[in-house]
Amino acid sequence: MNMEVNNELIDKLAILARLEFDSVSREAIKKDLQNILGFVDKINELQLDDVDPLIYITDEVNVLRGDDVKQTITHEEAMKNVPVKDSDYIKVPKVLKGK
């Protein structure tokens, strides 16, 4: 598979990942991604049709907990690290109208 990394792909991925790149850094990331993809494309050399994907590396199953209520932090503690807030709520600037 010879995957071409173009601006469109970078832009699409950046939106999905909520990252932004200026034109310089976008060139750099485009190059990096192209190189890395060339590198990881190696795995496509293997015959994998009859192989099941490995989904779990742990052997545990049915790890469940009881329906018990525990209050582990206070409201103040919860709000402690919040950058923008009032006494009750976490605050986020709104989506600008007309966008």
Binding site: N81, V82, P83, P93, L96, K99
Partner: peptide, 17 residues
């Protein structure tokens, strides 16, 4: 940067946040 962490000065709306 919403519930904790770094908040940019340029975070003016949801998208830029």
């Amino acid at each position: 940067g919403i519930r904790f962490g770094f908040k940019s000065e340029n975070a003016v709306d949801l998208e830029s946040t």
